[in-house]
Amino acid sequence: MKSSGNNTLNPHRNSDIKITASGLNLWYGDNHALQDINMDIHKNKITALIGPSGCGKSTYLRCINRMNDLIDNTRITGEIVIDSKNIYDADIDVVAVRKRIGMVFQQPNPFPKSIYDNISYAPLKHRLIKKGIESDELVESSLISAGLWEEVKDKLKSPGTSLSGGQQQRLCIARAIAVKPDVILMDEPTSALDPISTEKIESLMMDLKKDYTIVIVTHNMQQAHRTADYAAYFHLGNMVEYNQTETLFNSPAEALTESYISGRFG
């Protein structure tokens, strides 16, 4: 595996690059929250975004499925190219982007519906499946992929909110993969969970990367180290360093990265 090098955009858009951000800037009102981000995200890999609070890593993550569009007073320049198409082009349908790029949030947020309906809701609306056997199969396969099937198979009709926090988060992952996205964005998915649930989610991520490109924002450096193939360090709206995880953690090129990793601030 070749390294993508420091801060540089890979000039060859070869097939193992899924997402390319180039010259991406974002303002919340007057606050320049992301400054000239250039970054290639590799297909079927886990890419971790790390950095102190307010560094822009979550903001960047939300650019990838255009969730920032929902916040008033936001301005974005530059582009994010996915499958050789800039998702900020005028002819892009945001809904279609979000359909292809799933997201899991910091707080587990199951809908106040049954476990079954939580998963089947979006695929049914997208007409990926029909009610009945197709839907049953998808619910089962999604729950199996999310490692939740054994725990909930007897209570699919009970509300999603009745599950424990860790189970809820895996339900949210199952819900995201039921739509059959290419990319799954995870915004600190384990920060609200206990260590055992965290471990389950981490091993789930390792399983899922076979089929999906995963981008994860995390505060937890061990987690980034354990799970990610690539890691990017963000600081005050800049992407300071981006490399293979091992390289970034063991021999960071930038002093800022090193002081963060060694725990001098955060």
């Binding site: 929902l70 979000r98 997201m103 707080q107 947020n109 199951p110 809908f111 819900r175």
Partner: peptide, 21 residues
């Protein structure tokens, strides 16, 4: 809570579907 809105929109639901469902 806004988390409900975000969850639905992130699944590729339109705003009106999010509101109605």
């Amino acid at each position: 809570p806004n988390s409900q809105r975000n969850a639905s929109l992130a699944l590729g639901m339109t705003h009106s579907e999010t509101i109605r469902h």
